[in-house]
Design a binder for these strands. Structure first.
Lengths: 222, 222
DNA sequence: CTACATTTAGTACCAGGTTCTAAACTGCGT
DNA sequence: ACGCAGTTTAGAACCTGGTACTAAATGTAG
């Protein structure tokens, strides 16, 4: 369909220019259509006819060619996406996927930096996400029903960019005699490079209920 | 519609008890209906007839009485909600509302602990949200186009619960000679009580591009 | 028995489409 | 001037998941 056009386009100029400016409207219209629907997915075909000054059939042919589903399908997809997000928010309770866990000893989690984790202009990951991964892991590695971060000393060694996979490794360094506190060290890497390190003091169940308690806790994983 | 019912309910007991256990099926069914739709908003009236073993008209009467909109309306509402959320996500870039800002001097932000910030079982705020508020503020108070957290030393003084409002106050303590680093102290309070404190080292634009750079930055706010 | 609530049935209608068939119009090559 | 392809428009039948309304059947308490 378009093969022919591009072929002729390249060859001659004077005659085909006319052809192109006559043909472009379809492409242009479809581009516009995509843009309109993108920035307002709630628009009906009816409304589109008014905006693009073509018949409703043309709108529908365009949607078909572009693979854009009908209004209701779009809404359903959006609803499902947001519903899934809400559902997977409990998964959001631990930031990063824990791939290895030896309670009271060590743990490893992986966290991929995605669009929502970076500063839009520079695509550099925001610090609190790296902290959150490390903090979650430090809390998870403690073998108690409740564990709360009491304090932390952290360092952002280098910035992490969109798409990079952070691998955090946590080591439990010491358990206090009364077992009320634990020291956990976390090192995060992208590849071989260390990008973050943190020293966490975690309060655990017995002492965590009263007294100076921190900002995080966790449930026993299996 | 319900006024009458509740009226008789309150008055007499022995006679109405019978009436109630005869009436309950309706109420019970409606409670079930609410629950079903709540945990699966994508269900059609047809599917509900099978689940509740009543006619589709009853389902629809129930929905009316309960003020539950039809499937398509539900999906539309969800889609709109998620769309608004996505739109207001850039607001999520700074955690907490900045209410006062004196660049290179001090700043104040307020952050209310909501459902999504707490651990579901205990309703205690997760540490990284408190950190995020403080970190955002520490970065915001620096008068530079780009600012990145290099390191932080933080302490969770006491746990914060659902519904509490955290007020974070940041003070720029020192600016290095070359202006490449700044020291920022942040103290967060619920009412009079301090709940968090942190010491941040922030790298600023000139030196931030190369060298050891942190995990956060910010754009100039007006 | 009667009055009232509850449930079910059925019809007409609607939005926002899909699917399919059939015309027009447009412009180009020959 | 003619045909042909790409494009646009029109129209009818049908679909889902409802609303709105009328009417009848069933229950049940007083």
């Amino acid at each position: 369909m378009w093969r022919k056009l591009t072929g002729t386009e390249i060859r001659v100029q004077e005659t085909k220019v006319v052809r192109d400016i006559e043909r472009l409207p379809k492409r242009k219209r479809q581009q516009q259509l995509v843009k309109i629907i993108e920035e307002n997915p709630f628009v009906t075909d009816q409304e589109l006819t008014r905006m693009l000054k073509v018949s409703i059939q043309t709108i529908r042919l365009d949607r078909m060619e572009l693979g854009i589903p009908e209004l209701r399908e779009r809404l359903k997809l959006m609803a499902e996406r947001s519903y899934d997000q809400v559902r997977s928010l409990p998964l959001h309770e631990v930031i990063g996927d824990i791939v290895d866990l030896q309670l009271d000893r060590s743990g490893i989690s992986i966290f991929e930096i995605r669009e929502e984790h970076v500063f839009s202009r520079t695509h550099i990951a925001r610090g609190h996400h790296l902290f959150a991964q490390a903090n979650s892991l430090a809390v998870a590695v403690i073998n108690d029903e409740i564990a709360l971060t009491a304090s932390a000393d952290i360092r952002f060694v280098r910035s992490v960019k969109l798409g990079e996979k952070c691998i955090a490794k946590a080591y439990v360094r010491s358990i206090s005699g009364s077992r009320s506190k634990a020291k956990v060290e976390v090192f995060s890497y992208v590849g071989e490079e260390m990008i973050f390190q943190g020293h966490f003091i975690i309060y655990r169940s017995a002492s965590a209920i009263n007294g100076s308690e921190g900002g995080d806790e966790h449930e026993n994983r299996h």
